[in-house]
């Protein structure tokens, strides 16, 4: 029956990166069902990310409108969310959307200055950091030297 809930959560997207569902993003730690009541355990990405409240609300609305009577959203902080939890499908979706997916594993903090994520537009590996901080907490801004286009990089976190 969890498959049923899963199918609903597939339709709930990250408000700031709408191509990713909350499942792709890896923020849903657990889901359980008892009669008409559903409990979802959610791990926030960044402490201050405003999208987390919005995601929690969207999950609640989606499940309520699917007919569940009670929806509990529990926040789980530990273990902390890591970009390693983004699904492979999620990484492909990010790239297709124009955001370079995280490179490497979060255990090895990257040296952003020396990082060259391939350009999601033209695929060139000649890219350079513009700013370690980007449009949202989870992204940094890069520029492609080949096609000259700027692009977002989803940070390894």
């Amino acid at each position: 029956m969890v498959a049923e809930i899963k199918a609903i959560l597939e339709t709930v997207s990250d408000p700031e990166i709408p191509v990713l569902s909350v499942l792709d993003l890896g923020v849903v730690r657990n889901m359980s069902k008892e009669g008409d009541a559903v409990t979802i355990q959610l791990t926030p990405t960044y402490n201050g990310c405003p999208a987390v409240d919005a995601m929690s609300m969207s999950i609640k609305l989606a499940l309520l409108s699917a007919g569940y009577k009670t929806v509990h959203i529990e926040t789980v902080l530990s273990p902390a969310w890591t970009s390693d939890w983004i699904s492979d499908e999620g990484k492909q979706k990010l790239k297709a959307y124009g955001i370079a997916p995280p490179i490497g594993k979060s255990l090895y903090p990257e040296d952003m200055e020396n990082l060259t994520p391939p350009c999601p537009q033209c695929g060139s590996e000649e890219t350079t950091l513009v700013s370690a901080f980007g449009s949202t907490a989870c992204k940094a801004l890069f520029r492609c030297i080949s096609c000259k286009e700027p692009f977002d990089y989803f940070k390894c976190h």
Binding site: Y46, N47, G48, C49, P50, L77, V130, S131, A132, F133, G134, S135, A137, L141
Partner: peptide, 20 residues
């Protein structure tokens, strides 16, 4: 602009910590 964004990001992180 980049540093404006950096400080806003820092601010968000700090306020997120404070909330928890």
């Amino acid at each position: 602009l980049e540093q404006d964004i950096a400080l806003s990001n820092l601010s968000l992180d700090f306020i997120g910590e404070a909330r928890l």
